[in-house]
Design a protein around this nucleic acid. Sequence first.
DNA 1: CTATTTACCGAAAACGTTTTCGATAATTTC
DNA 2: GAAATTATCGAAAACGTTTTCGGTAAATAG
Lengths: 339, 339
Amino acid sequence: MRETTLKQIAETLGISITTVSKALKNYPDVSASTKKAVVELAEKLNYTPNTFAVNLRTRESKTIGLIIPEVVHHFFSNVINGIIAEAEKNGYLVIILQSNESIELEKKQVEHLLNKRVDGIILSLSNESNDDNHIKEIIKRGIPFVQFDKIAKLINSSKVIINDQKAAFEATEHLIKKGCKKIAHIRGPVNPQNAIDRFLGYKKALEKYNIPFDYNLVYTCKDVVFEEGIEFAKQITQQHPDVDGVFIITDLVAVGFIAYCNENNIKIPEKIKVIGFSNWFMSKVITPKLSTVDQPSFEMGVKSFDLLLEEMNARKEQKPFYPKTIELGTSIIERESSK
Amino acid sequence: MRETTLKQIAETLGISITTVSKALKNYPDVSASTKKAVVELAEKLNYTPNTFAVNLRTRESKTIGLIIPEVVHHFFSNVINGIIAEAEKNGYLVIILQSNESIELEKKQVEHLLNKRVDGIILSLSNESNDDNHIKEIIKRGIPFVQFDKIAKLINSSKVIINDQKAAFEATEHLIKKGCKKIAHIRGPVNPQNAIDRFLGYKKALEKYNIPFDYNLVYTCKDVVFEEGIEFAKQITQQHPDVDGVFIITDLVAVGFIAYCNENNIKIPEKIKVIGFSNWFMSKVITPKLSTVDQPSFEMGVKSFDLLLEEMNARKEQKPFYPKTIELGTSIIERESSK
DNA sequence: CTATTTACCGAAAACGTTTTCGATAATTTC
DNA sequence: GAAATTATCGAAAACGTTTTCGGTAAATAG
């Protein structure tokens, strides 16, 4: 028992496949009576067009690909949410792939999606990524493409980002205004643009307020995980007992930092003030509640899809498309850890 | 500039499309020399088969659909992770859709996937689901189908679950063994099977240890969110100040419960012991650390896909397939909140 | 040297849809 | 009543692949 096809409907009605197809798509050159007959029979037989055939014929699948470093990540799952919601609203489905923060896997996933012939690709770079060739391949093949969050700056594609440098500046400034005199920074890995930018923002804030910058106060994460927060908290408090403020690349690590301090009776915010980044859900449930930088993750997903859609539509209509960059706003959320 | 096709290769090589296709698929009836020529040219022209055409011809897309209530959920994102990983290992891609805990949307998403003609569907029911018709439709159409976590018990499909009743029994027993005499339960919504089972496990544990069951000590979540934890903590501590233990449907709500107690100076575990469910990441970063029931979420994803794959393969080979149910083990994780 | 096997190749159908371009019949216009 | 217009339909090509089934030429067997 196969699925119903146009042919079956045509044969039982004694008309041509062409007419059936046209009737269902409401072409003007089909009489009202046959239209009615076709639609009714289609309804009765539960006809739905064979997507595979439609894809082949129309050269599009109404499916896009999304590559992110990790699904299990509060920020990314929020972005996914935004992308899926917006995609669905516009009749698109989303295939999700992970790079697991590995450049090799990321390349493989891009290859996957190109072979699959998705209508467009949205991507956030892995921390390892320091090579552009797979990205260039997407552009070369003319596949609509949007980057978000962790981007390759030099690639000429649409982008949805926040101003990491500005946000980091404000976070650091926040600590300074709360009275911190010696501020450490736990930064992200060396490659990702946003880790670099946040570091620069931190540095600029120190400069503005005439606080000497000291490289020994900068600690670099490798995997950006909870455990690194614990480890660096230990190092910082032992090596620099006079540090009174820390700006940390992301909340997950900041939560590790706080966990260590809690266990070792180092008072936050009295002894050290802490501010994280990204406003993870857990930030408001730990003790003390973590101050952080709010990043509009859901909206980032929505905007990313919107830009992709614009490009896909332009492509279909053979119109030129000029990549756009959307910069979303951030805001400091003050909680107990920096009071 | 179109993508390379078999036809192009055939024409430049002066051979037939058939031979090119066979050469690339390593058929035995193609000479080594032409095989070599074809493969080399294909390589040079960056040939990849047109998925749309392959799908149409082979009647499969190597794509499966996944419907879950929420992506932004530690448990589900872990399951997604498992499914995507296992799917990819076996050459399948995954389209993800959310039901947002709405039965209407869930039905729509099922419809979506059926129209899209995915090779199989994996689903976890929304909390609202109390109607089977869309599920039955999947079965009726003969699409390979697996349910996990929140399942429709009566549907004859493969399932991957935990023994919620047993796990809840053990969680409650854990509290009893820690000395609790009056134990409240914050349960999930009325429909989902796992909320029912966990409630039954709680009740059974009380019975076994001769603790009278009191309906007034059972509180029912509607949305299963953080805020409900806060609200019920307030109600429980005010209405029943002698309650000394609480078993809570899931960690997210338990964290809310703890947050309220922390703010109102109600000591955990001294005054009230708390145990949650699912071992969310945040459970080990809050203060006090939350005892919980560990649920193998990643593995749940892997097993779900494995069962789906079995069914998809059986279907392709026209062999009969008998749905299986896999029950995964859980374990009590004792942390500070129940010490 | 004929008969049979083996090696290699290709024509053609099929998957199900969309769309172009004629064709016919019915209707209107003058 | 002939000419032009309109309404309605369908043949056929195309999208790119896979696979069946024959066919020819070369190699082997007797």
